[in-house]
Design a protein around this nucleic acid. Structure first.
Ligand code: SF4
Length: 355
DNA sequence: TTCCCGAGGA
DNA sequence: TCCTCGGGAA
């Protein structure tokens, strides 16, 4: 028997829980879509994506009938794009094999692409009200601090025991798990936990010993690697409207596979921005050597950074008109500004446009 | 600049 | 068991 303030936490949750779009309908489909989007992604960034996604695909069957080209644009800028591809794969499997109902056992859920232990637990507890633990980053942090425990294995055991105990007390696993995650997000946050307003304060080990910043165990991080790129925003007037040239990345690229982007060339070293004329000439050389096309009326638009896990990309942007076609970049197309949001892309495209 | 966050493949 | 994938907030 573990001592834990179940009632205080539940009371706090009912009072302070946020009114999030995926809390409106907590059936398996809504829970699944939201939990996939919330993997590695902040709540506030997910909200608009979730709303657009559900509007376009209100049911799992609607999603199953879609093609990747319909799904990926709704993921543009959200990151971890295999999530969207796996979402579609799983929708098709579930529609064919389970008549459109997500399975309600841990083992069956784990077999589905994109569903791991956390997401399986979330679906089982939130949608099906079954006593399965969820141990995401938020919950891990709360337990680690409350029980002064750094071992992942021990934390998993604690999570299992607590959801069972909570269930014995006739608590709904859905609200118990969500209350833990909500507390981790709103109160017991990573950098600045507000222990003075925390419903778990009384029994909390980290609070008692003032050790909040040492729990949970911090994971060692890879060193950031820098890469430098020249990006070409080629513009052309077609039938009286301005269009941009984009290319589709291949499936062999390291990241952002098969997404559309403004053509980029990796540089051996950073460009010096001080001399803009020299920079433009350098840029011209880089692109004309590798693309066999002529760029003219160049303008240096500036640069920005973009992070992809432990890589940090510094991207220089030149806007120009273009004669001839681009060789060696795979499929290309000219797209009007207003249609750029309809293609699958990363947020690099948005950042370049915003310069 | 650093930090945070699940699943899958090697 | 380690390493990889994106992006935004602080
Ligand atoms: S008292 Fe502080 S450290 Fe303990 S659970 Fe609450 S917010 Fe976290």
């Amino acid at each position: 028997m573990i001592t834990f303030p179940f009632h205080e936490l539940e009371f706090w949750y009912q009072q302070f829980k946020r009114d999030l779009p995926w809390r409106k309908f907590q059936d398996a489909y809504h829970v699944w879509v939201s939990e996939i989007m919330l993997q590695q992604t902040q709540v506030n960034n997910v909200i608009p994506y979730y709303q657009r996604f559900l509007k376009k695909f209100p049911t799992i069957k609607a999603l199953a009938q879609a093609e990747e080209e319909d799904v990926l644009p709704l993921w543009s800028g959200l990151g971890y794009y295999t999530r969207a591809r796996n979402l579609l794969k799983t929708a098709r499997i579930v529609t064919e094999k389970f008549k459109g109902n997500l399975p309600s056992t841990f083992e069956e859920l784990l077999k589905l692409p994109g569903i791991g232990p956390y997401t399986a637990g979330a679906i089982l507890s939130i949608a099906y009200h079954l006593p399965y633990p969820v141990l995401d980053g938020n919950v891990k942090r709360v337990f680690s601090r409350f029980f002064l425990e750094k071992s992942n294995q021990k934390l998993e055991e604690i999570a299992k025991h607590l959801i069972d105990q909570s269930y014995q007390l006739k608590n709904d696993p859905s609200s118990f798990n969500q209350s833990l995650m909500e507390l981790g997000a709103l109160v017991c946050n990573p950098q600045n936990p507000t222990c003075l307003s925390c419903p778990l304060q009384k029994g909390c080990g980290a609070f008692k010993k003032n050790l909040q910043s040492f729990y949970p165990q911090l994971t060692k991080k890879n060193q950031t690697q820098y890469r430098f790129f020249a990006l070409l925003m080629a513009v052309k007037k077609i039938d009286g409207s301005i269009k941009f040239l984009v290319r589709k990345r291949s499936k062999n690229e390291q990241w952002l596979k098969e997404l559309w982007e403004f053509p980029m060339i990796q540089l051996k070293k950073d460009l010096k921005v001080r001399n803009k004329q020299a920079l433009l000439e350098e840029f011209f050389k880089i692109f004309s050597q590798q693309t066999k096309c002529k760029i003219k009326e160049c303008a240096y638009m500036g640069n920005f950074f973009h992070s992809i896990t432990h890589h940090r990309l510094k991207i220089h942007v030149v806007k120009s008109s273009l004669d001839g076609s681009l060789q060696g970049f795979g499929p290309t197309q000219w797209v009007a500004n207003k249609d750029l949001k309809k293609i699958a892309s990363s947020s690099i495209l948005k950042k370049a446009l915003a310069l």
